[in-house]
Design a protein around this nucleic acid. Structure first.
Lengths: 202, 202
DNA sequence: GATCGGATGTTGACACTGCCCACACATCCT
DNA sequence: AGGATGTGTGGGCAGTGTCAACATCCGATC
């Protein structure tokens, strides 16, 4: 009834509508409120229509999470290649997209069950490494700590830790940002000095 | 029927049995499988008995999570006061008690709704700071970044980040342990030198 | 252009869940 | 002895995920 307005029997792009609706509900009311029936209701279809596009509720959530990783990746790319800016972007995503962030890195989904989700996650993280280290890495497969830079790994852990602490409400965004900025400058120890040499934007 | 064996009508210590049963199910089948009815079934009581001890499913989960924080605290205390050992203990908890860890730091529970849970969390984290910094801090209330040591905050974020990455399966335990150990020695930069001077056990 | 197959959406049903109600039982206090 | 109170029971309701059978539409093929 929206995109191509065929006959009102076939939706047009129900899969897209379901993902959008699910994200909307996720953002407003949390992951617990995302039910197949409610999402179907929002999309204006019967309670079983979603099963033509997602094999289960988990699969729908996996789709939403995968798109979350795509957005995270886009934010990282847009942040430029300075470590501090990358960290800020990561943190901002965790705050602005809190419910989605918690879905992406939570216990609800087992990434092994959803290859697309796993790929999206790896892709985002490899992008982070590629930007931070200023070199090209292949995508796909699990994160290999021997491939990813040791510096990037450490930076990732710090930022990820702060992001979770903030998302959980254990720490204020201000405190985390301050600590993160201080760490970025205060503790460089350039084992992988090449990546740090470039002045970068901001 | 267990502790004091009164009349088999009154359970004896149902609250305890419910918490134990819930933790058991949580460990074996994940948080999604923890339902009030199933927990009641395991405890051998009617489907409504749990409501005499927990006002909702969330409240039961909050109780389980609070006990998780107590166990985490115990592990930290037992680990001694060397930073590396503390980090390893934190990481070990995330791996061994993965479902509980994810419940404790996940989006399922809003800590603001459960004061006991919030207190348990703060208590564990303040214990971490107290051990790491070798000084006494007051307990209760949210974590104050001006009270907690800057060094501890940074260490906490790193360890917490690695713990989540491992728990999510994004990183192997070995890689995280290695990176953590390397970081513990490689990047001291003792702003808060007092805490590090003591040789400590192990 | 008619026909048929596959993709997509619908209706109905079942088992399960959280939560509310009224009721039964046990214990304790006066 | 006799309520008052805490604790467990049984029934019921609305909501959910999922399955099976059916309806409808689109596009390829004759």
């Amino acid at each position: 009834m929206s995109t191509s307005d065929r006959t009102a029997y076939h939706h047009g792009d129900l899969r897209r509508a379901l993902l959008d609706g699910a994200l909307e509900i996720l953002r407003r009311e949390g992951v617990g409120a995302v039910s197949l029936r409610e999402v179907a209701r929002v999309a204006g279809v019967s309670h079983n229509a979603p099963y033509r596009h997602f094999s289960s509720r988990e699969a729908l959530l996996a789709g939403v999470a995968a798109e979350g990783f795509h957005r995270l990746r886009a934010r990282l790319v847009a942040a430029g290649n300075e470590l501090t800016a990358l960290g800020a972007a990561y943190l901002a995503f965790a705050v602005v997209e809190r419910p989605c962030f918690l879905l992406m890195f939570g216990s609800t989904l087992c990434k092994a069950d959803f290859p697309d989700l796993a790929a999206a996650a790896t892709d985002a993280l490899m992008t982070l490494d590629r930007i931070a280290a200023g070199r090209a890495t292949s995508t796909g497969g699990p994160v290999d700590p021997d491939v990813i830079g040791a510096d990037t790994l450490r930076a990732w852990a710090i930022v990820h830790g702060f992001a979770h602490l903030v998302a959980d409400g254990q720490l204020s965004l201000e405190a985390a940002s301050r600590a993160l900025a201080a760490d970025g400058k205060g503790c460089p120890e350039p084992r992988d000095a090449v990546a740090r040499e470039r002045p970068a934007g901001t």
